[in-house]
Design a protein around this nucleic acid. Structure first.
Lengths: 252, 252
DNA sequence: ACCTGAACACCGTTCAAGT
DNA sequence: ACCTGAACACCGTTCAAGT
């Protein structure tokens, strides 16, 4: 009579005890398979061959579970520093590493990109990015903002790539409406080329901004922020702050 | 006895009939107030003073309701073309218009950014972006990919701004861990400055890429993609495709 | 045609009770 | 200490029945 509680299934998992790491790993598997929104405490429990309520003894709630999965994936990001390469190549390497990680767990990464706090100050990725931007002489007062913007840019491209927008927009011809499926059908091989194109454009823009500032490489670092052209007004932008507040009257 | 079905509440809403536009507008109000995940068919119904099941006669399901709200916001994007301005300024105007719209409905926009299909070929925004990139001579064969990448970049920065990552990363000092709240407390006034910095960097990168190509302005448009430097390999990137497949052995 | 109540199949989470 | 069944307060959605 008691034996019916553990029927002889094909794969037995419950001889190993329930830990937070095992729970998060199983959650990551479910997310990789079916997406974040398909992760359910009850489904996760049956995947672990456990009672749904047992999970709450190791994980406070579903949000913490998701954070644990994100943390588990982020721990896989171990950047080789490659200190002898030029800074442009080091930035490229950091970005492509990021992209590889995003391709490994696209469902989880697409979710975590929209969450705050998924890059922490002690992440080796962040430290490597800061160190790399310090090489060509980005002013110390601006270096964190430049690093933040590079993260935002890379994440934006990765989001658009992961959810298919990049491919869809690239084949969005306003003049010729129906081109058929002439190009590659689904997983375009030129997403990587486009990713490199953004990186190159950003790096080129950084370079020209840096050379415009270049009077003595190591001198005047950490100076007053108002002194260097990084903090000045951009060349082309007019003062248009009042233009955008009077547009689009909300009809709701 | 029948009168108890419609008690004299303070504001009467149900004399006007239930339409899809009214439902989507109410959904947008709820999303603006409490976020996408707080939008519920039942709560929406009570906000409209209607029966929850009545909504299904005008909207097929919750996803379609969200799409309707996104479409309703996207219809507010009417770009002034400003054809006499230089292309750099036109791009800046498009991007800041996009940003203004995102600030108007941050909850909905943060959600829609992660959805595919939220930019359509017939959107005036897309047509204006394509037309603007055509001015300085971006090759026709690459113009859609460049436009797609600019959208992805702007969206990435907006996502990071809306969920607070941009501000958090900017105050993420790996050397001095605890700086206290010295800067502005919450809604940083320099998010706009950072937004302009990305735009300027991208535009500068585009400019230098374009002038490197500049031998005759109108000549050789629409040519073979392999002929121009846009499709060639980037200068700095080494062929490192095999490097990324052997990193991060997945411990799961 | 439009609306509605009841019901179904799910959720996350709490809690008292077991060992 | 760890686990568990029952229960609570929600969801989206279906469906037969009303007007």
């Amino acid at each position: 009579m008691k034996k019916v509680k553990r029927p002889p299934r094909g794969t037995r998992r419950r001889d190993v005890p329930l830990t937070e790491a095992r729970i998060c790993a199983a959650a990551l598997r479910l997310i990789d398979a079916d997406g974040v929104e398909a992760l359910t405490m009850r489904k996760l429990a049956t995947a672990l061959d456990a009672n749904p309520m047992s999970l709450y003894h190791h994980v406070p709630n579903r949000d913490a579970l998701l954070r644990g999965a994100v943390r588990m994936v982020g721990a896989q990001f171990r950047t080789v520093t490659l200190e002898d390469a030029p800074w442009q190549e080091r930035i490229r390497l950091l970005a492509t590493d990021f992209r590889t990680l995003a391709h490994r767990h696209p469902n989880l990464m697409a979710y975590s990109f929209s969450q705050p706090d998924f890059i922490q100050p002690e992440d080796p990725f962040w430290a490597a990015l800061i160190a790399t931007l310090d090489v060509p002489g980005v002013p110390r007062s601006e270096i964190r903002q430049v690093a933040a913007l590079m993260c935002a840019v890379v994440i934006g491209v990765l989001i658009a790539e992961l959810n298919g927008s990049l491919h869809q927009w690239s084949s969005l011809d306003p003049t010729a409406p129906a081109a058929g499926e002439d190009g590659p059908p689904d997983a375009g091989p030129d997403e990587e080329r486009m990713f490199r194109l953004v990186l190159d454009t950003i790096i080129t823009g950084l370079e020209s901004r840096l050379t415009a500032d270049d009077d003595g490489q190591g001198a005047d670092r950490d100076g007053a922020p108002e002194a260097d052209p990084w903090s000045g007004e951009p060349v082309f932008v007019p003062r248009q702050q009042s233009v955008s507040s009077s547009r689009w009257p909300d009809p709701v």
